[in-house]
Nucleic acid binder design. Structure first.
Lengths: 147, 147, 147, 147
DNA sequence: TTTT
DNA sequence: TTTT
C-alpha cells in the first residue's frame, strides 16, 4: 500500500502541446512554474526567490480540456502523481525525466475560472494503459517530445 | 503565489546516507518506493504493478531523526516539496535529478512508530540556506553524492 | 472554482456500521481517531496529547470494502472532503455534524494491507446522488443514525 | 502516529474577526466557502452546486496577516487541520463546532497576491498553547464568539 | 533499491 | 471510541 500525491498551484509556462495517440487518446504537456518566496535567514543571509519548473502531463478528457482552456500564464491548481521515466539520449546514455501525471485540474485565473466542465478523470482506468506508446523518445523524433 | 506539495507513503529502499556539512548541518538521503496496484482495464488488458522510486532528502533535525530511526524496509509518511537540480556529468553533459525535500515525516512501521520525537521542521528557515553547498556533484566526488 | 480536500491517517474507533439505501447503495460510517503528539512549549508548559475524532462516511464500493475489511483498531489512510450537514434534534433545535466523505482509502494495518481490491471511487458520479436520502435523522429513527 | 491535514481553496465569506488574548496572541476567524460543481448523473438527475462553509481559525502571525490583507470575497489557499470543540449552549446542551486551524495561507486573489510576507507558522509551537483560553463560549459573551 |  |  502506498500514496504518491502531488498538489501544485503555479503558472503555465507555455501553451499546452497536445498530441493524439493512434488510439485517439489525447495527451497534453506543458511546463508549470512554482516559486518559493525570497526571505532572509536569522543570520542575515538573503535567500532569493527560486522558481521550480514541473513537467505536466494530462491524458484523455483532461488533455482536451487543457487544449481548449489552458494558456500560457494561466494559474492552475493541479493534483496528480510523480512519475519518472527514462529514455536513451542521442549518445545512447540513459536519461531521466520526472513528470507530474495529473488527476484533477482547476483553473485559478479569473478569465479561465468556471469554464472547464468536468476537470477530474476516472482513477485507475487511465494513464498506464497507454504508457508504452507515450514514453519513448526515439519513436517520436526530437521535436515531438513532450519536454 | 504558488504551492508545491508532495505527500508520499512508501517503503525505504536503503538505509539513509547521512552527511554533515561544514556548518554542522545534517543531510540525509534515501530512496523511497511507492507502487501502483496492478489492475485490469475494461478491455481486458492487464496493467501490472509499477514501482516509482523517489529521491528523498531531509535536512537538519529531520536528517538526524532519520539517521537514528529510519531503516531499509520501513514504511514512512512524508510531506515535502519537489526540487529539481542540475549538475554536469563526467562527460560535461547537463543532467537533472528530481528530489523530494521533506518538511514532515511520520513513521508507519509498527516497530519504528512512536520513536521519533519531533518529526517536523520549522518552515522557511531551512533547506535553502545551505543549498549551494549541497547541490553540486563536482565538489563532492562521485561516491559522496546523495544519489 | 474551489478545493475541499482532507487527508487523514488514524485508527478506527469502532467496526463500521453499514446500511443499504432503498436504491441498494451501501453507506458505511465509523469514527477515526487522529492524535497530536504531546510536547513541551518553550516556556516549559506541557501540552498533552490530544485526540481528534472524525466522523467517516463511505459510499458504494468503498462502503462494501469497509464492511469486509475494516475493523476497530485498524490504521487507515483516507482522502476525502469535509461535509457539514444539519438536522433538528429531539427538542427541535438545529444541530450540525461535520463528516468526512471519503474518495480514497488505503489500509495501513499489516494484517489488513493488500486485501482491499479497488480502493478508489469514481469521482463526480458518487456521493451527492443519494445525499437527500441519507442526510436526515428524522426518517431513520435514532438508532439508525450514522453517528 | 497520525495525520490530520486539510487543503482548501475557497472564498472568504466575511472580513476576518480578530481578537487578542491577554497574552497578546492574535486569533482571527472567518468563514470560507468551497463549492462542488453542479453536474448531471448517468440517470439524468441534476445535482445542483452545493456550497460548504468552513469555520477558519488562524493564530499569531497568520492572524495578523489575515487582519491586514484578507477581506470578504478574497480567494485563499489554506492548509491546516480539523479540530472539533464542544461547548454548552444557553440551554446547557453540549454542542459541537468543527473548525479548521490553519498552518499555511496563500492569497489567490490578484489584488491580494504577493502582499503577505511570511504566511507560514512554526509548527508545534502554536495553537494548542492557548487553547483553553479560546475554546469556551461562556467566558466570552455571545458576540465575542468566533462563529 | 522497498513493500504487498 | 482508536492507537503509540
Amino acid at each position: 500500500m502506498s500514496v504518491n500525491k502531488v498538489i501544485l498551484i503555479g503558472n503555465v509556462g507555455k501553451d499546452p502541446e497536445v498530441r493524439y495517440l493512434d488510439s485517439g487518446v489525447a495527451v497534453a504537456t506543458f511546463p508549470l512554474a512554482t516559486s518559493d518566496r525570497a526571505y532572509t535567514l536569522a543570520n542575515g543571509t538573503q535567500v532569493p526567490e527560486r522558481t521550480e519548473w514541473h513537467n505536466i502531463v494530462l491524458w484523455r478528457g483532461l488533455a482536451e480540456t487543457a487544449e481548449k482552456y489552458v494558456h500560457k500564464g494561466d494559474k492552475l491548481y493541479l493534483e496528480g502523481k510523480i512519475r519518472t521515466r527514462s529514455y536513451d539520449d542521442q549518445a545512447g546514455v540513459k536519461r531521466y525525466v520526472t513528470e507530474i501525471f495529473v488527476d484533477s485540474m482547476e483553473m485559478l485565473s479569473p478569465k479561465a475560472a468556471g469554464v472547464a466542465p468536468q476537470a477530474t478523470v476516472q482513477p485507475n482506468v487511465q494513464q498506464q494503459s497507454i504508457q508504452s506508446q507515450v514514453a519513448p523518445a526515439q519513436d517520436n523524433g526530437a521535436d515531438d517530445l513532450p519536454f
